[in-house]
Design a protein around this nucleic acid. Structure first.
Lengths: 187, 187, 187, 187
DNA sequence: CTCTAATCGAGACGGTACGTCGCGTCTTACG
DNA sequence: CGTAAGACGCGACGTACCGTCTCGATTAGAG
């Protein structure tokens, strides 16, 4: 029976903060985004920020986790699917659609946090359906896959004349997916 | 050629600053190292710092370039050598020797700069002896190789029970070298 | 007339707030007492405070007026009594009994408000039975008497080895009462 | 050889801060003066304030001590002079000249600090030339004299139609000087 | 005895000032 | 001269408290 805000106020604040950060990240790199910027954009009191998050970093973590959450549904299956090429294409297509946002997330000061969060979530997922290789420690596999993928995609999104989705999917497949799945040296 | 200790004073200051930064990086992450820390450790006036470097970042770049310089002589040939396995082993062995330093460089806030500098230098090198693949844009190849290598090595140095040099060399070879050299899909 | 504990709830809240402030004033100076302290101590909701008083100051005024009310019955007659010495002794004795409370009231940030309220009430009283001296404007007389008295008593209550009630009465008499009553220069 | 500022910069900052506070005190009560107000008025960086003074209060203390310093040369001799009336007149005259400043100092939130500083300085002075009365502890004498004087003068400066300097001098003399000097009860 | 309205607790919120910290510039004094 | 020492302007940070507000639970009085 929430006629006005349709949502408990407390969480509206958080939503506003996350939205503000996302908006600002498309304007300038994370390190240059000030807490005041965020609260101003979110129409929220400065001090209120610290009631929700201890840090600017903490908000970024939250934002990252959520954005990655959506992406991860497409990213992780890649490594365990029969048709890996289809998966990488889906991933690239998704990224391309949200090009601007992800460009911001994977570039500048936010990238490190993003990647870290990415790895963390990927580790969790991987813990369940683990395919162990003798030569490749499980978590290194995850670290490599995620890092390389992120790096490749970051490169992609920052190009003036970027390759097509299909081309990137092939590159991803050959540079990341195939190597991490290989069970024995390719001679 | 100056005798030891008699090199021009200006460069002695720079040496001291670089040394101080390296020492501090082994104590705390780069973002937490302040210019005052550095100058204090280097026994150099605070203002003097800014006569040598515009920035804390600039010093890091300098330090990074030098440390990488040594490493790069071993890293780059890997991709263009006949016996890649030997090269990766050499790389890992070198890193292992200077484990503490590189652990600091590849972890924390310095990592981004380090990797960036790494890529920059690698691009330069690669510009000369370019092996173009149709499916892999040249600079993406470099970005991927370097990033993945750095990430894998960073993982290695941060492990409690790290794999041996030989094992890491094999991993590197299979995850990074082989894929970037492949000319056609591995079927 | 309500039995104890059955008085109207609204005024029970006020009583609790006044009590809480008095208690807190014995622990720390007024400026360091926060509204949250008070409401917590009074077992009253934070917002409720502002339903009763516009201000922290307003509560202090209320508290002050009441405490002074009791005291004033003894303070004011001093100046208009035949046996002033007896009156000053009564005043000092009363203060001594409630030493701890008045020590808190007359020291620290509350003192100014206290004195102000004191003067205000004294002015009211004095307006009725005014003895005008040519050389001493009426309200200055009040200001002087009250301020000096307060100051002297504050000094007394803060001493490690305070003079006796009788001694203080004499001092008060000679420093405050006699001079303000004098009608002509004492030669 | 200070061509420009004619004064070491460090002390110029302090001077500017003191000046700014004095100026602001004539515009609004001390509690409403913000550190930012002060630094803005003094053309000084905000943080610089805290390099000089730990507190807004500390600056007030400094200002107070200096202003009182000048005044005290006239205030203290009053009690130990043969011709006390001349001294009180000098005091009142001085105050009247700097009416606006002292009005600000003796009114509002600054008053407490002012009086405290006043007493402190007076105690120091009094420690040297102590005339002990049996009935009046030395420091109470000082506290009373100073407090009463301050209070009387504060009243004076806040009047719409203030008495003349001569009248105030007489009042001061009869209310403060004579009583504190008396050696035996005036019968 | 119920139902509506006032009142309360709890505490989130916008806002203002605080005091701290680090950067990069600038001044001063010294060797 | 050039350097050490460090003051300074700047601007973000995170904290504290204020006074306003919303919200749900409690309670009182009207029906």
């Amino acid at each position: 029976m929430n006629a006005v805000g349709q949502e408990p106020k407390a969480s509206r604040t958080q939503t506003a903060l996350r939205g503000a950060l996302l908006a600002l990240l498309e304007e300038k790199p994370f390190e240059q985004v000030t807490v005041r910027d965020i609260t101003a954009r979110a129409n929220v009191g400065y001090a209120t920020f610290f009631r929700r998050y201890p840090d600017k970093e903490a908000l970024l973590h939250d934002v990252a986790a959520r954005e990655i959450g959506q992406l991860l549904a497409m990213t992780l299956p890649i490594l365990f699917t029969v048709d890996s090429r289809a998966s990488t294409q889906a991933l690239c297509a998704y990224l391309w659609e949200h090009r601007k946002l992800w460009s911001a997330l994977l570039t500048g000061g936010a990238a490190a946090t993003l990647k870290h969060e990415f790895v963390r979530l990927a580790q969790e997922q991987a813990a369940m359906s683990r395919r162990q290789h003798a030569w490749l420690p499980g978590d290194l596999g995850v670290v490599f896959s995620v890092s390389a993928t992120v790096e490749i995609l970051a490169w992609w999104l920052s190009q003036a004349e970027p390759p097509s989705v299909v081309e990137m999917a092939e590159i991803l497949d050959r540079l990341v997916v195939t190597p991490s799945l290989a069970t024995k040296p390719p001679v």
